[in-house]
Amino acid sequence: MNESLLSGGNVIVQGITGSHGAFHTRAMVAAGTNIVAGTSPGKAGQDIDGIPVYNSIADIQADMRVDTTVIFVPAAHAKGAIIEAINAQVPLIVCITEGIPIHDMLQIKQRLKKSGSRLIGPNCPGILMPGKTKLGIIPANLSLPGTVGIVSRSGTLTYEAMASLTQRGIGQKYVIGIGGDPINGTSFTDCLELFQNDPDVDRIILIGEIGGTAEYDAADYIATHVTKPVYAYITGHYAPEGVQLGHAGAILHTLHESANAKTAYLQSSGAHTATNLVSLIDFVN
């Protein structure tokens, strides 16, 4: 994953005629994104503020190159939309849709492995490069161009971190929400690698959550590969013990997944940590 991939190129929107799709297409255009077309089965020939609507990605590709797709289709059709984009060899797929069944994601991961496409999400706010391009729903008016890289599992918490930095005059090069689902396309580690290798980025903010083990992989990567300062916050310090997955779950989901355990591990891996976001942002300042 590199800056040129995330810059979007020719961007399309799958589900462009839906209420979210149309609303956020306009917001993306306003933020500087080059949206060339959209899909909505059976609605070819319509347009959204002059952006042409097609029935399928293949139909768009007959007319122009597609570098990125942003997906807003409902959960019941999201697997089909992602697989369509993989089959069309779209290099970057950003899936905003929330509530995709986990068995659908298992199948999508199998297909991704055999493809050249990168998936961001699902159930994510997407990517914002302030002043350049917006692929998703991150509110661009609360960002500021700069040198911080933000990566987060949470949608709204990503905005919170970004807006807090902006309020203090600290700008961002990348704001990336990788999504809150247990199985997703792009990991913390992928984003840390991007930030470490981009000479424009001088500080990194990582926001994790209780549950799962993705933050441990991130911490190991920080310890071994990241030389830039990392500021990390894990949300959910006061969350009661999580939902149990029967006996099997109780075995696989231990205190290891708590905010305290993850924070301690990130700290021992060299990250600066805080127990709430307000303190973390004060730290970056």
Partner: peptide, 11 residues
């Protein structure tokens, strides 16, 4: 959002 809701409680 679950993340923001937990962060609100933390703060």
């Amino acid at each position: 959002g679950a993340g923001l809701a937990m962060a609100t409680v933390d703060a």
